[in-house]
Simulated assay, not measured.
Amino acid sequence: MSSAISWVSVLQRRKRGMETNLMTSADVAKLLQVSAPTLSRWRSSRTGPPFINLNGIPRYREADLQAWIKEKRA
């Protein structure tokens, strides 16, 4: 995968003690290789990965994202 963020980089951040449970929209868009507007459209239509709103800022839990990807592969 050629995206700027990968599960490997998430694990590397975890080893350095950085918070990785919540991912930004930019991180998720890069990981899924979709545009930010596409991810936004998915949020609006509730067809994309599950997200939480923190003061109006969408964040994605790693576990939810991995489960959503696994579900889409089936």
Rank of each mutant, 00 (worst) to 15 (best):
Y60A: 01
F51N: 01
R59M: 08
W42C: 02
R16I: 14
A4G: 13
W7K: 10
K70G: 04
S6T: 15
P37M: 10
V34Q: 03
I69V: 11
G17P: 03
E19H: 14
I57D: 02
S44R: 13
Q33H: 13
S3N: 12
S6R: 03
Q66N: 01
V28Y: 02
M23E: 09
Q33N: 09
R73S: 07
T38W: 02
S9L: 11
L11R: 12
P49N: 02
V28R: 10
L31H: 06
V8W: 15
R16Y: 11
G56Q: 04
N55K: 11
R46A: 03
V28C: 08
D27S: 09
Y60E: 00
E71V: 09
A63T: 13
A67D: 05
N21W: 09
N53S: 12
A29W: 06
L32V: 01
L65M: 01
S25E: 11
I5E: 04
L32N: 01
P49I: 09
I5P: 03
G48M: 04
A26C: 09
I5F: 03
G56E: 02
L65N: 08
R13K: 12
S44M: 11
A63I: 03
K30S: 10
G17D: 05
S44V: 07
S44W: 09
P58E: 10
A63P: 06
T47L: 06
W7I: 12
A63F: 06
S2V: 12
R59H: 04
K15E: 10
M1R: 07
K70L: 07
L54W: 04
L39M: 04
R16Q: 14
A36I: 15
R59I: 02
R41A: 15
N55I: 05
A4D: 13
N55V: 02
P49Y: 00
A36V: 15
V28K: 10
S2T: 14
R46G: 01
L22M: 15
K72L: 01
R16P: 01
V10E: 03
T24E: 07
T24D: 13
M23R: 15
L31Q: 12
P50F: 08
T38S: 06
T47W: 00
D64H: 05
